[in-house]
Design a protein around this nucleic acid. Structure first.
Lengths: 299, 299
DNA sequence: ATCAATTCATAAGCTTCACCTATGAATGTC
DNA sequence: GACATTCATAGGTGAAGCTTATGAATTGAT
């Protein structure tokens, strides 16, 4: 057999209190159990740790040396338990995840703020990447999950839709525009529009969906960055064609989104996880917050 | 229950090998036992440590954190065991003891040299004190034992005679002096002599022993320090009256000692230990060496 | 695609060990 | 000298830990 932490606990207790009886009381065991633990440790280590008579217990020089190592080990054990408990309760730790640029700018700030309120001590490492990089980065790095829009399936990957962004027309809050419930794509064709460039994911999806209906989008302006489209819209240059989820309300308070219909086109905002990997408690808490916040927003 | 070192050993093994089966083999237990140890530790700490399928075992982030603390504790345990074993085998450690000035200068250098040969790594702390301080210092300090001449008994103190020093006349190695086997006190009275001052232990004993026989010592010189007496003798001022054990042969190569008889007076050189205190293994080894060396010298 | 092999989890049984109660021995105290 | 306190030990009991046996899942080969 080998040295046990139990023996060391008894040892440091006896060392401190100079009494087997008192140490036993502290440990919640009987005097005889403590006596045995000390004997075991002595025989284990091959040294006498205490000179004991029936009346007194005096540590030997060996005990003086050993007590430091013993206390360090017990301290480490306690620290480990505490640290793990904090991790388990998501009161400490780190969440590393990947987010597509769109989600990161428009959707996640809300989630981050909420999460910070409930879990102030958790370190957050959000890596915002281009949509195409979402899955590769999740696979190649230590990120625990990813949030963004993906299409299709991926091997060893769980995909869960958190919310859906309806393709919308985003424009200034004019009386006319605000009064509308929705716009059709045909109506939109008569108005100046700002769309994403053809190479982007969003645009590809739009073109496909419209093409299936024999329709066609001819935007007035084509841009690469979502923010550019929104800024132009705020200037009154036209209506931006984007998922409503990508409009950060606080950043562009003058803009509002109206769903585009005939056809209605939606883009999922998904949570991606690698199969067979448990999320850290901190990550689980974050995901729970994201689900709650985004579900509320959807409803 | 609490975390055990056994669990931590299993944990670090599995962490390193990424396999419960391999770790179990290393630990000399069955796979199922190792599996159980990991499960116990996980439930103990409240965190999942490995994502395991039937085919693979992957550490979680919590495991990455925990492994350092675990390895440190196991390292400490090993270090502790090793250190204690070294102490037990007197291959490491420290011996602190008190020696009377006489013993320290004349007798113990031999012992120290011998001990150094067999136990090179042991640190030695020899505290040479005046004869009267021998016991008080042994009681009041962390010294493990004392070597010197004492008379009578002391409470809680074991006294063991290691060798006896015969009171001798010490003089220069002249042809005349060297030829003698011994001198009587009466013969000595005719010669110039150097003795210790009346207040000293040695002198007290001499005066008592001679007084019992109706004799009386009238030294030519009286000094306080043994070394002074020997230096004067080396100068040819007279014969020093001292225990032969107090003549360091290497320090005064020109001097030799001849026993004084009628009466023969002996002074014990004793080993003093505090009752109920085990000597450290290093101290035991030192004492053994001292016994051996001094017995040889006596015989 | 099927079969063999590997790996982890679980169940059942047994051994061992750890603790408790009871008691003895020693020592300091009134 | 009687009493109280403290440590050690013995015997009994229950729990904990390990092993063997088996099942389930996955990989790799035929």
């Amino acid at each position: 057999m080998n040295v046990t932490l139990r023996q060391l606990r008894a040892f440091t207790g006896v060392y401190r209190t100079r009494s087997i009886t008192r140490a036993a009381r502290e440990l919640g065991i009987t005097q005889s159990a403590a006596s045995l633990l000390i004997q075991q440790l002595e025989s284990q280590l091959g040294v006498k740790l205490f000179d004991r008579s029936t009346r007194s217990v005096r540590p030997t020089l060996a005990a003086d040396e050993a007590v430091h190592a013993a206390e360090r080990m017990l301290g480490d054990a306690l620290g480990l338990s505490r640290r793990m408990r904090d991790l388990a309760q998501a009161r400490a730790g780190r969440v590393a995840f990947v987010a597509s640029a769109g989600a990161a700018s428009a959707l996640l700030p809300l989630v981050l703020a909420k999460f910070r309120e409930t879990h102030p001590a958790i370190e957050i490492d959000m890596r915002d990447v281009a949509a195409d990089d979402l899955v590769p980065r999740l696979i190649a790095t230590d990120a625990e999950f990813a949030i963004g829009s993906v299409e299709g399936e991926f091997a060893d990957m769980t995909i869960e839709t958190l919310t859906r962004g309806r393709l919308s027309a985003i424009g200034r809050r004019t009386a006319d525009f605000a009064a509308r419930r929705s716009l059709t794509w045909d109506e939109l064709a008569q108005l100046p529009t700002i769309a994403m460039r053809r190479a982007t994911r969003i645009r590809v999806q739009i073109d496909q969906a419209l093409g299936a209906q024999g329709k066609h989008l001819s935007p007035t302006y084509e841009v690469t960055l979502i923010n550019t489209a929104l800024a132009m819209t705020a200037q009154g240059l036209g209506l931006a064609i984007l998922p409503a989820t990508m409009l950060p309300a606080d950043q562009f308070p003058t803009l509002i989104a109206k769903p585009l219909v005939r056809p209605a086109i939606t883009r999922p905002v998904s949570l991606l996880q690698r199969q067979g990997r448990t999320l850290s408690p901190a990550a689980q808490a974050f995901v729970a917050t994201a689900r709650a916040v985004l579900a509320e927003r959807s409803g």
